[in-house]
Computed example of a mutant assay.
Amino acid sequence: MRLSTPDLDEAFDRADHARAQVVRVRAARIDATEQEDCLAEEVPIALEYNGISHATMLATPADLEDFALGFSLTEGIVDGVSDIRGMDLRHECAGIVVALEISSACAMRLRERRRAMAGRTGCGLCGVETLPEVLRPVPAVADGPAVPIGAVLQAMRDMRARQVLHDLTGATHAAGWADAQGRVALVREDVGRHNALDKLIGALARGGQDASAGMTLVSSRASFEMVQKTAMAGVGILAAVSAPTALAVRVALQTNLTLLGFLRDADAAIYTHPQRMLA
């Protein structure tokens, strides 16, 4: 297979996919004629706060400002958009560094958090050093108006129709936000489902959108991190294409979040707080 990628800096500036020549297999028969295919890009993205490296993840190099802001909010590093004083992107070592300047109060809190973790035995969970950091307390979301189940199902169908990068590559997840009537306002895509959700939450925050007035949709399973991030954004409904985990359901119960799974056509399963759903 031959992979055609533009100049590295040019690729990182915008390209979320690359083109490749592939040989197809149809009905167990090999077609010797090469055809063009699209592949989702995946590059190291390092987040740096006030000059100190914090985390590095593999992500699709698009909407990185949304990603950095959403990650900062859902991880509790900052409390709001106003805590971000500046943001710069630079290319280093075949990756991208997102350098954020945050308020002194948030920077001090982050330093104390890192200092508290120093010297403890790592639990090996997704690079987080301690179990309390993984299962950190998340405020409960506020009660909101009930939403017709039909609006949730329609929103999921509409989000699927807007997954442009997935249609090109077949390799990305999406996260979307829709209002209480099921009208999809924002969609973000990434190779990682958590990254897609962080990008969505960052986009909502940057746009000044009242996230609590609608629902979050994800094209993946609902892990507990997805529930945590949704609750941190103040959204009371999370709908997933696939199944939730048991821990995700427990966290949803604790945070007053309505969790739906297995949204397929006209079907769904409501796991927590069904009072938010109208027939």
Rank of each mutant, 00 (worst) to 15 (best):
F224N: 08
R24D: 13
I270T: 12
L153Y: 04
P145D: 15
A105D: 12
N50M: 10
E10I: 13
L3W: 13
A279V: 08
F67S: 05
E34A: 11
L263S: 07
P137G: 07
R162V: 11
G80L: 04
I149R: 14
T216P: 05
Q254H: 12
G236V: 05
V147N: 05
D79C: 13
R193C: 08
L217S: 11
H17I: 07
L64H: 03
Q163L: 15
C106S: 07
I201N: 04
I52W: 00
V98I: 15
G127D: 02
V251G: 00
V152I: 07
Q181Y: 11
T121Y: 04
L238K: 06
Q154W: 07
D179K: 09
F224Q: 06
R29W: 04
L204A: 08
L100I: 04
G124N: 12
D9R: 13
V138E: 00
I102D: 02
R188H: 11
L204W: 02
A231Q: 01
W177S: 00
P6G: 14
D88E: 14
A105V: 14
T216I: 10
R221S: 09
A239V: 05
T33H: 10
S72Q: 03
D198V: 00
T33V: 13
E48M: 15
F12G: 02
T172W: 00
R206L: 11
D143Q: 14
I30H: 02
S82G: 11
I237R: 06
L47S: 07
L165H: 01
C106L: 03
M87I: 15
K229E: 10
E48F: 08
L125M: 12
G95C: 01
L186G: 01
R136M: 08
M57W: 12
I52A: 13
G76I: 03
T255F: 00
L238W: 01
R113Y: 11
R115D: 14
A231G: 07
N50T: 10
I45Q: 03
D13C: 10
E65Q: 12
D31C: 09
R221G: 14
V191G: 12
F71K: 04
Y49G: 02
L125R: 10
I77Q: 00
A46P: 06
E41Y: 04
A248M: 09
Q181N: 13
R111A: 15
Q209E: 08
G182T: 02
V128F: 11
E112Y: 05
S53W: 10
A155Y: 06
L165W: 01
E36G: 10
E75Q: 14
A94L: 15
A240I: 01
D79W: 00
T60P: 06
V249D: 03
V43I: 15
T169S: 03
S212Y: 06
V227F: 01
I96L: 00
R160K: 06
H91L: 15
V97M: 03
V97C: 08
R111Y: 13
G70K: 03
V128S: 10
A180I: 09
R136W: 00
P244H: 09
V134T: 10
D13A: 15
